[in-house]
Amino acid sequence: MVKPELGALVGAIAVFAFFAVQSETFRSTRGIANWLDPASTLGIMAVAVALLMIGGHFDLSAGVLVGTTALTVGIVATEFGQNLWVAIGVSLVLALLIGFVNGWLVTRTGLPSFIITLGTFLMLQGLNLGLTKLFTSTVTVTGIDDVPGYAAAEWVFASRVEILGAEVRIAVLWWLLFTALATWVLLRTRFGNWVFATGGDDAAARNVGVPARRTSIVLFMTTAGAAWFVGTTLAVRLTSVQANTGIGQELIYIVAAVIGGCLLTGGFGSAIGASLGALIFGMTQLGIPYLRWDADWFYFFLGAMLLLAVLGNRLVRRYAEAARR
């Protein structure tokens, strides 16, 4: 069977070679540390979104949820005067709750997750703005670094580690860890088998005793958990959060997962692939300014990668279903 991430691997190597040949900054260790940064926060989300897509669902609220969790951390810490870790805990509980509600609604109603999470997306977008204005009278939460507990939180979420003379953000290490963990779960555990089965054909999965509903709900909660992690990282790193944080990113996560080989119809894909998709995104986003090109080319490039990936994935699906009779 063709590995889902094969196309993304070839793509990542090609993109790296393209920029590395032309830009010395791009291929320097400092340059690499720079483009790994946007890849890391996107990658953490893309891995979770890939698991969800393999399980047969979309989560359009994943982007805005990054904002919701970051704002919650900020508001609970600064407006309610709580220790930052308390705020981070509250934010996690809230995220898991929203993930659960998404999953519960989708599995209960049988409606497409696309439309259910579009609803939660819009609701959260409104809440993010409304509540931020209500509490701070502005559209920004600031002063997160003045709260007790900040030093420890900064160490966990926003420190830098020196690797080969370059300062690498710790999010890059978290990203690698989460990718490895997700790959292990998908390929080496019972739950992973259930994810593929639920996304492949949930009626067939249920017939042989797979708890398809529970699997879907856990996947929605995992995506929400990833959004919490990235949201907290942003809040701690930037020490202030805009009320519109994360909006629009949900499609970028899906783009990364699809470039990584996830089928839109579910049942096929990989966590490593999604991470490679995020890597391509990071390399392109910084590679284009390194070459002194106009930044507008970035989206053209991303769109072209997406189209190529979808065409490639179509061939995979055809191959796997070639001999139906």
């Binding site: 069977m1 088998n193 593929f196 054909d201 067939a204 797979v210 049942g267 096929f268």
Partner: peptide, 21 residues
Amino acid sequence: YQDLAMIPLMAIWRNFFLGAE
């Protein structure tokens, strides 16, 4: 069941043990 016995995109061994891994 006629059409609902197997998941086409999954490996045979994964299908064989699905739900009883």
